[in-house]
Structures are given as C-alpha cells and as structure tokens.
Design a protein around this nucleic acid. Structure first.
Length: 262
DNA sequence: CGTTAGCCCTGCTGGC
DNA sequence: TGCCAGCAGGGCTAAC
C-alpha cells in the first residue's frame, strides 16, 4: 500500500530518469516525505506527498513499476532506473528497458501548470458526445492526431487511438472537424469502451509491460486492427492496412473505416 | 493555427 | 550464422 508510506531513501540508479533535471534532487528532497495519495492524470502517475508536492512518474512505453513488500527476497532487476525505499521496509522499483520513462519531484504550482495543460479525462462521466463535439469543432487535422494530442484529450496512446477509431468506424485521416453528430457519438463511446476494456485486461503487453503486481496485460490479445497489417478485419474480413499519421504507425480497415462521413 | 523532422533509447525483426 | 538497417513510440523542441 503506497498511501501512508514514508520515503526513507530514493536511489537514482540511472540518471536519465530525472531528465531534464538533475538526479541529486530526488535523493536530497524525497527522504522524510509521506505519500498522501496515489492518482493518475492522463498518462502520468502521481504520488501526492504531504505538504503539496508531488512525485510524477511517466512510464512511456517500456517503464515498469513494481511494489516490493518487505522480506520479498532477492530478485534480479534488469534495466533499473529508480528505487524508492519506505520506512516500513517495502519499496517501489522502477525499471525501464528503453530509458524513456521519467520521474520528477514537482512543487504544487509546477504540478498545477503541467496538468493544467492536459485535456479532459475521457473516462469521467462529464466526458461524452457533447464535450467531444466541442473538441473537434473546426479542427482541421486528422482525427487520429487529435486523439493523440494530450492537450486535447488526456491519456489516449497509439494503440488505443487505432482501436477506438476502428470501433467507431472512422478513418484515422478524417478531418476532425468533418465528423457528423452520429460519428462524434460513436467515437466518444468507442474511446470509453476501448479504455475500459484495456484496463479490465490490465493493459497491453506487446513487449515487456507488467502491472504493479508483475502480471502481463492481455488487451493485445483483443486487438482488432493495431499491429495486424495484412490480417483479416474482424468486421468485414478484408485486409487490415497500415499507414503513418503524425509519425505514428496507424492500422485501420479501409472498408469499415471510410473517408466519407457516415 | 498547424505540420513534419529529429531526438532520446534498446531490443527485436527481416533481409542478405 | 552473423551482421546491420530499420522499426517501435510519448513528449519535447526546432524549423517552417
């Protein structure tokens, strides 16, 4: 249980994890801090600390956080980036194969500034067709790059954008502003159902992702188009195609996901 | 307002 | 079998 733990020591194993800030700051400032809560905003994991500051962790693609209980025994941890040791003897281990992940200690105003730049949370009750319609209105850019823009909607990654657009039967290159009312409604529902299903299956373990309890996710077993280039579309049996949108690999069914409104 | 390119990084894949 | 180029992607900056 992270909430209530007091940090005894912060060991930065790989200095790249704190970029662009200096790694010494964590080791100097974290000891003695108590965790008052654990929350998520977009793709950021937040350890809220008593006093208002915040430890903000972003796993990117290959980061893995593991909660290790006291007396769990020795374990070999490849790609170690950071270890937080708690006064009770438990610890939190951050591994990251590709070293893209980050951990930062932010003051309350710094955190407010970072999270204030993020768009709304798609899984909240207030997010729906009405709010999505406002976000796409007059936006002349591919709907997929809009979905990936964290300042527009928070938390949608490449996998989930592809899968949500397929579920909504919308071509990833459609101009966001060209979506009609029915399409906006389908897309808002598809975003929610895709994210909910992924959470239920504990995420997508394409390579090394593991939950905090060390388990692999299973959402990748249910991908309908993502990374399925050349395979049959589950909707029509046609061939799934691949293209690039905003520099990201993009998978879709050209039959089910039309460029024309409908 | 918007785009693309490049950077960061390492492990896997495919071609020869 | 072994080598090497290319790919994967989230967030950021720079250039346009």
């Amino acid at each position: 249980m992270l909430t209530g733990e007091e940090i005894a020591r912060a060991c930065v194993i790989d200095a790249r994890v704190t970029r662009p800030k200096k790694p010494q700051v964590l080791a100097a400032k974290l000891p003695g801090k108590k965790i008052s809560g654990v929350t998520r905003r977009g793709k950021y994991l937040r350890l809220e600390l008593v006093g208002g500051s915040m430890m903000v962790i972003h796993l990117r693609m290959t980061g893995v956080l593991t909660y290790v209980e006291k007396g769990a025994g020795q374990s070999n941890w490849p790609h170690l980036s950071l270890i937080l040791e708690f006064t009770g003897g438990d610890s939190l281990v951050f591994q990251d194969q590709r070293r893209f992940g980050t951990a930062a200690l932010l003051t309350a105003p710094e955190a407010a500034s970072l999270f204030g730049r993020l768009g709304p949370e798609p899984l909240t009750r207030s997010f729906g067709a009405v709010q999505l319609a406002r976000l796409v209105r007059n936006r002349k850019r591919p709907v997929k790059s809009l979905l990936l823009d964290q300042g527009v909607i928070a938390g949608i990654g490449n996998i989930y954008a592809d899968e949500a657009l397929f579920r909504a039967r919308i071509h990833p290159l459609r101009d966001a502003g060209s979506l009609n009312e029915a399409e906006v409604k389908r897309l808002s529902g598809a975003i929610k159902s895709t994210l909910r299903d992924a959470i239920k299956l504990e995420g997508s373990s394409i390579s090394n992702y593991r939950s905090a309890r060390g388990r692999r996710g299973r959402f990748q077993e249910t991908f309908r188009v993502h990374r399925r280039q050349g395979e049959p579309c589950p909707g029509c049996g046609g061939s799934v195609e691949k293209t690039r949108v905003g520099g990201r690999g993009t998978y879709f069914c050209p039959v089910c996901q039309k460029m024309t409104p409908g």
